[in-house]
């Protein structure tokens, strides 16, 4: 009985504001739901650009065909490996850079600018620079260093293609992690570090007991944001390995591209898209859970 009145008030307020909210909510719904509905519809259609005569309801065959193809499982694993590896690398380096660039040293402003730099290089350009200038087994800088040290240069995209992709994508995303974590570092109360010093904490212990707990929330945010973008990585793969050799660097995103615009199988590609949405939601669920735990500090 006690909360009947607030409930009524809440309902009345909703009635008043609903007409005002409708346009915004409506646009968002259309924006999100129309493409999703179209993808769902196509995923159950026979729809091949090469042969327009094949049409009609396909049932689950698009999904069956996709899931049973050898590339499918590999692409999901590749996707997860890449996201996980890049997340670990960018977070470790991001925390390291954030702590480092938070210190006073001459030329700090320039150093900060440089560490943010890769963020402004578009993915295609970044991947081409890495492929042709750095990782090329004949003319690349890495090959030169390896040779001058007496090692055989590694042909990255043949022998360690996934490691190569992870390196490029990590290079692009370290600045983002650094930027977010550096701003978080600047809000850390210096007296906490001093108090920890007085309490006998050395560098690693200050990191473990003061800095990392302080950064836990921004770290979760970086994880969330990066995951969203990393699940959709495409240009880097396209310009370096085209998903190969074999399926070694084919992610789900890239597989969908291959289905749609190499095999012209729109139905199969749509089925892949639906699975990608489900996969992204599963990953998001885990992340949101960890955020919820973190936010309730």
């Amino acid at each position: 009985m006690a909360n009947a009145k607030p409930k009524m008030q809440h309902r009345a307020k909703l009635m008043r504001t609903w007409p005002l909210l409708t346009p915004a909510v409506g646009v968002l719904l259309l924006w999100a739901l129309v493409p999703l509905a179209m993808t769902l519809w196509f995923s159950f259609q026979r729809y091949n650009l090469v042969d327009p005569t094949i049409s009609g309801f396909a049932g689950w065959s698009n999904y069956k065909f996709l899931v049973e193809s050898p590339a499918f499982l590999a692409s999901i694993l590749n996707e997860l490996v890449m996201v996980a590896a890049v997340l670990v690398i960018t977070l470790v380096l991001g925390v390291a850079f954030a702590v480092l660039y938070d210190q006073e040293f001459p030329g700090r402003a320039i150093a900060r600018l440089l560490v943010i730099g890769p963020f402004f290089v578009m993915p295609t350009v970044a991947a081409l620079i890495w492929k042709n200038l750095l990782m090329d087994p004949v003319n690349g800088v890495f090959a030169y260093i390896a040779r001058s040290l007496g090692f055989t240069p590694l042909d990255w995209f043949t022998h360690a293609p996934m490691a190569g992709e992870v390196m490029i994508v990590s290079w692009e995303w370290v600045p983002f992690a650094t930027l977010i974590l550096l701003t978080a570092m600047q809000s850390l109360d210096r007296q906490q570090i001093e108090a920890a010093k007085m309490d006998g904490a050395r560098g690693p212990q200050i990191l473990r007991y003061v800095i990392l707990p302080h950064l836990s929330r921004p770290i979760t945010i970086v994880m969330m944001m990066e995951t969203i973008y990393l699940l959709a990585v495409f240009a880097e793969i396209f310009v370096t390995t085209s998903g190969g050799p074999g399926h070694a660097t084919t992610t789900l995103t890239y597989l969908i591209y291959q289905k749609a615009l190499v095999a012209f199988d729109v139905g199969g590609a749509s089925a892949g898209g639906v699975i990608a949405v489900i996969l992204a939601n599963i990953v998001a669920l885990f992340l949101i859970r960890s955020v919820a735990r973190n936010v309730d500090l």
Partner: peptide
Amino acid sequence: VPPDKRGLAMVFQSYALYPHM
């Protein structure tokens, strides 16, 4: 001598408590 080895304890203006403990 580093701070903790001097055997002194300090109370800070902002208290500087560890917020997650």
